[in-house]
Lab assay of single mutants.
Amino acid sequence: VSVELPAPSSWKKLFYPNKVGSVKKTEVVFVAPTGEEISNRKQLEQYLKSHPGNPAIAEFDWTTSG
């Protein structure tokens, strides 16, 4: 189950709350306009370098507050 949070234009930000008793931590995933899922800052940096014209990296908020 995921919750969609505010994201930069043409992107989606999905929040996957951890299940009770789960060892997996809460996860935030950005979905690029191409449909590619980005789950960490390093991936995001690589994606933005190879896909010019996207929002600046500073516009991506990895917190769950939206």
Rank of each mutant, 00 (worst) to 15 (best):
V28I: 13
L5Q: 06
L5F: 09
N54Y: 03
W11L: 04
S10L: 13
G53R: 05
W11D: 06
F15M: 10
E4A: 09
A32G: 02
I38R: 00
H51T: 02
V28C: 05
K12G: 06
F15L: 12
F60A: 01
P6R: 07
F60T: 01
K13T: 03
P17H: 10
F60V: 01
Y47T: 00
V20P: 13
E37D: 05
T26D: 14
W11Y: 01
P8N: 05
S10H: 14
P8R: 03
A58C: 11
E59M: 08
T64E: 07
E59L: 08
R41T: 10
Q43I: 07
A7C: 07
L5E: 05
V29C: 06
K13D: 05
N18I: 10
F15C: 11
S10R: 15
L14P: 01
W62F: 08
T64S: 10
K49R: 12
R41N: 09
S22W: 08
S65E: 12
V28K: 01
V29A: 06
L44T: 00
A32M: 01
Q46F: 10
R41P: 15
P17Q: 11
E4P: 07
P8V: 04
Y47N: 00
W11R: 04
V28M: 05
I38K: 00
E45C: 09
T64R: 08
I57A: 09
P8E: 05
K25L: 10
V3Y: 10
P8W: 04
F15D: 02
P6S: 08
A32Q: 00
G21S: 09
S39D: 09
V23M: 14
F15A: 09
G53M: 05
K49E: 12
S39A: 10
S22G: 12
K25H: 14
P6K: 08
L14I: 12
S22F: 09
S65Q: 11
D61M: 04
V20C: 13
K12E: 07
N18Q: 12
V20W: 11
S39Y: 15
P17D: 08
E4M: 10
A32T: 07
N54D: 02
F60M: 01
P17Y: 15
P55Y: 05
N40T: 11
P17W: 14
K49V: 10
P8M: 05
P55T: 03
L48Q: 00
Y47M: 00
Y16I: 08
K24P: 15
H51P: 00
A56P: 15
K49I: 12
K24H: 15
A56M: 08
L44M: 06
V20K: 12
L48T: 00
V1C: 15
P52A: 06
P52C: 03
W11V: 04
G66D: 14
V20R: 09
E59C: 10
V29H: 06
I38L: 08
N18Y: 11
A58G: 12
S65I: 10
E36N: 03
P55L: 05
P6N: 07
E59I: 04
V3D: 06
S9W: 08
T63F: 05
P17A: 10
E37G: 06
L14D: 02
E27N: 13
Y47C: 00
R41Q: 13
Q46G: 08
D61G: 03
P8I: 04
L44G: 00
T26P: 15
F30R: 01
K13E: 05
L14Y: 14
P17F: 14
L5H: 06
G35P: 00
Y16E: 03
A7R: 03
N54K: 03
V20T: 12
D61K: 06
A32C: 02
A56G: 12
S10C: 15
P8L: 05
V1M: 12
K24M: 14
D61T: 07
W11C: 06
W11M: 03
A56K: 09
W62H: 01
Q43A: 10
Y47G: 00
K24Q: 14
P33Q: 02
I38V: 06
N18F: 11
Y47L: 00
L48A: 00
V20N: 12
Q43W: 05
N40K: 04
E4L: 10
T34W: 02
S10E: 12
K12H: 09
E27F: 14
N40R: 04
V20Y: 10
G35H: 03
W62S: 01
S10K: 15
K13C: 06
G66C: 12
S2M: 12
T26Q: 13
V1N: 11
S65A: 12
K13H: 01
S39W: 12
E27C: 15
L5I: 05
A7F: 06
Y16T: 07
V28Y: 03
S9M: 10
S10Q: 15
W11S: 04
P33T: 02
V1D: 12
S50Y: 08
A32H: 01
K12T: 10
S39P: 06
K25V: 11
F60E: 01
E37F: 15
L48N: 01
F60S: 01
P55N: 04
D61E: 07
E59Y: 05
V28G: 01
A32L: 01
E27A: 15
K24N: 15
L48G: 00
K25T: 12
S9H: 13
S39H: 14
V1K: 11
V20H: 12
S22D: 12
S50Q: 11
A56C: 08
V3W: 08
N54M: 09
E4C: 11
A7K: 04
K42Q: 13
H51E: 02
G21Q: 07
Q43T: 08
P6W: 10
G66Y: 08
I38P: 00
A7D: 03
K19W: 13
V1A: 11
N40S: 12
L48M: 03
Q43V: 08
Q43P: 01
